[in-house]
Write a protein that binds this DNA or RNA. Structure first.
Lengths: 163, 163
DNA sequence: ATGGAGTGTTAGCCAAAGCTAACTAATTCG
DNA sequence: CGAATTAGTTAGCTTTGGCTAACACTCCAT
């Protein structure tokens, strides 16, 4: 798949939001370090974001998000978190890989799908009796390449009980 | 989120593969129509793909995929299908939305995550007793905003039976 | 208060992927 | 067969987002 070497507006907003959460004022240098991009690229991006009203930035000064900018950043980050959590906690993908995939996919999840994914995670991970059986079943299936006989047996008992 | 107005190499490969499956020879015009891009853009892209050895194309002639090109196209399409199926059949997202989201995300799913997602779908959708209970439970949860009392009650019985 | 280190900006370049306009090749049909 | 239509290409421009080199501003430490 594709290695992205170009940042989008959303990446800048997300980065600024994350850095701002660190408490310290957000600087061009830090954004540059965070995104792995040179400082002129950041300045360039900030001009656009500023023109779009997403960011407040006076020359040589710190950067802050506008209300809309913060909103957008939060939306991106929500998608990021949902995707990462799905990859890690449902699919059991390694944390670093989950993070990378989430970073790249976060820009492309529609609001509808996000809503459903979030609900799905909520439903699954806040299950009232701890990790659901089926999720354990999936771990088994993934590791052994077949379904867990014990669980299957139990299902069969339930099926016959119902019929 | 982002509206992509620029196609990647992978989009062209996938399009060519899909059109080739239609049986008819693949032309610049068709690729152009399929991707919603002007013909010079296709010619341009084909030059690159051809240089990269992913596509066979002589001037004014039809287009075919090379072995590696076909391989890459298949990889993209596999990601596409897995994502679409997850969105549709697990999250119950509307088909058109699922298709669009899959189209945009397909380029960014790592091999590891794809493998796990595919297994997850296999595990869930080939369940030996039809649609799993938990998936029905999630539908209920999504529509009603709370868990299905009947299922919860049954779980409680099982819990006490185990303890 | 000022000079230098470090931070930020500007100017100007490159590459990718689009586009339109204008051209050339291929094909079809009278 | 040859002209007209369709298909494909080329040239050249635009935008976007990088980059480097060089310049400008800040601010701390002397």
């Amino acid at each position: 798949m594709v290695i992205r070497q170009t940042m989008s507006t959303e990446d800048y907003l997300e980065a600024i939001a994350l850095l701002a959460n660190g408490g310290k004022p957000v600087t061009v240098t830090e954004i540059s370090r965070f995104l792995g991009v040179k400082k002129p690229s950041v300045t360039h991006a900030l001009r656009k974001l500023s023109a779009a009203g997403l960011v407040k930035h006076e020359r040589y000064r710190d950067v802050t998000l506008s209300t809309e900018g913060a909103q957008m950043a939060q939306d991106v980050y929500r998608r990021h978190k949902a995707l990462r959590q799905f990859l890690r906690e449902i699919l059991n993908v390694a944390p670093e890989v989950a993070e990378e995939d989430a970073c790249r996919m976060e820009h492309f999840l529609s609001p509808v799908s996000l809503e459903r994914l979030a609900k799905f995670l909520e439903f699954t991970l806040n299950s009232p009796h701890g990790e659901p059986e089926w999720l354990k079943g999936f771990s088994y299936y993934f590791e052994h390449g077949k379904r867990d006989e014990k669980l299957l047996a139990r299902c069969r008992r339930e099926d016959s009980g119902k019929g």
